[in-house]
Design a binder for these strands. Sequence first.
DNA 1: GCCTGAAGCCGTGTTACGTCA
DNA 2: CGTGACGTAACACGGCTTCAG
Length: 307
Amino acid sequence: MMPRTSGASLDLGLSLGLGLTSQGSLSSSTTSPTTAGSSSPWAAALSSVVADVARARDAHAHYHAAAAGLDLDPADRAAMRASTSPDSAAALSSGASGDNTNKRDRELERTGSGGVRSDEEDGADGAGGRKKLRLSKDQAAVLEECFKTHSTLNPKQKLALATRLGLRPRQVEVWFQNRRARTKLKQTEVDCEYLKRWCERLADENKRLEKELADLRALKAAPSPAATLTICPSCRRVAATATAATPTNHHHHQQCHPKSSSSLPAAAAGGSGSVVPSHCQFFPAAVDRTSQSTWNTAPPLVTRELF
DNA sequence: GCCTGAAGCCGTGTTACGTCA
DNA sequence: CGTGACGTAACACGGCTTCAG
């Protein structure tokens, strides 16, 4: 099943071009002087994304208003509450000092017993349970695009992003933590699948080799003294069960390598001309890996288009 | 230079909530 | 309408790094 929110964020038709759009402002959050004066690629990306999202916001909101028949969807309403709440400023100030707070203070902020909570006005959390704020599609889109630029945030970036989105810095921090976790989980799944297929291929190859070994042993035990083992230098398989000069041997070689000479080195046998480790030969995907890096040193990251 | 405690960040696992089929 | 599955925000906890004293 496709992730609903992330999929929707991609459906916003966001332009990923950086640095070309003017400074945009999302909802009622104030423009951050931190990012306004910044010329870093991250800030440029943030500005661009926010501008694009702001342009898409109206159409998006109207779409949902039409779909709901009367109003914005709950996520957007929640986002509106969050972004227009006076807590935005309070959250900003708390976030600004949050970097200097100790763990106990952060704990208080987390539990809401002493900190500022943007949802405390909702009155729905009287039982003391945590209230889950659903990020709006716009907010998620901005966070997503920023994540593509940097998967981690420094305090300045976190604060700027929180200010723009009308969220608490802690919320931005949590979102990035969860996002990194999801990315890693996805990558783990991909790697797992990769290794599984590789293992299956190796098992098949192992079966084949075992059978080949059995054949060799049988051949060795054969009474005929003229029997000679010939292994194809290219494919490393037993070429024949008779002498090297027999037509059978040539037949094999002609079949496998019609244009190759008998003295052809094994390395030159690949049809593509590239030399790959033997295990890569029966696992095509590994060829791509070997052309870039080794398996152990640099496993490929899950490309962002997966999300 | 080494040690130590505080502070902050991050990864990992878990919980709880919202949404959808 | 009730329910289970799923996605995800929020939380808890421990490890690591940095820095001041």
